[in-house]
């Protein structure tokens, strides 16, 4: 079968507030772009099929699996990774709480968990235990059995609700 002519595309992607003009193959996933081109390592490969949540980033403030997104399709989107949220106070609280609760064992799934937890607490500050678990179901954490992350997030939610 003859190769079709155009295989690479110029893509303008906005990541963590920076505009990047890239030339990428049409099939390149956002996860690859973030890691190999922009060296943002908080998005991680776990399955490539959207089941494990290790590659989650925020697209227009919503956590989504970057392994299922094609880079050429992200022109209009605002992408944020954990690296770009260093100044976010809710994320900082969550990170402190994760550290205190030993909620990151190997740490591989943690950026995804943090982004989903932040999203839930932002959209639903008094999220119930079952909402919390539903949100975390996007992520596979093989180390903790989810206990410590759930404790860490609940702790932030409880203090957040008081504030």
């Amino acid at each position: 079968m003859p190769r079709l002519l155009k295989t690479h595309y110029s893509a303008v992607v906005t990541v963590n507030g920076h505009v990047h003009r890239l030339t990428v193959p049409g099939h390149e996933r956002l996860l690859t772009t973030l890691r190999e081109r922009l060296h943002l390592f908080s998005a991680r490969y776990g399955c490539g099929t959207g089941h494990c949540g290790a590659c989650v980033v925020l697209v227009n403030e919503e956590p989504v699996p970057s392994c299922l997104l094609l880079t050429v399709r992200q022109q209009k989107n605002r992408i944020q990774t954990l690296e770009g949220l260093k100044k976010d106070s809710l994320l900082a609280q969550l990170m402190t709480s994760f550290a205190e609760e030993h909620a990151a064992q190997c740490g591989y799934c943690t950026p995804g968990l943090l982004l989903s937890a932040r999203h839930l607490l932002k959209t639903c500050p008094s999220a119930t235990e079952s909402q919390l678990r539903e949100e975390l179901s996007s992520h596979i954490c093989r180390c903790t059995g989810y206990y410590a992350p759930l404790r860490a997030i609940a702790k932030v939610r409880d203090s957040y609700a008081v504030d």
Partner: peptide, 22 residues
Amino acid sequence: MRMWPLSTYPRYAPDWLDLHPE
């Protein structure tokens, strides 16, 4: 406190692999 596993700097093998396009 166990803060260091929250770091997003390259530390896993796949990170180091991705830093070597050559």
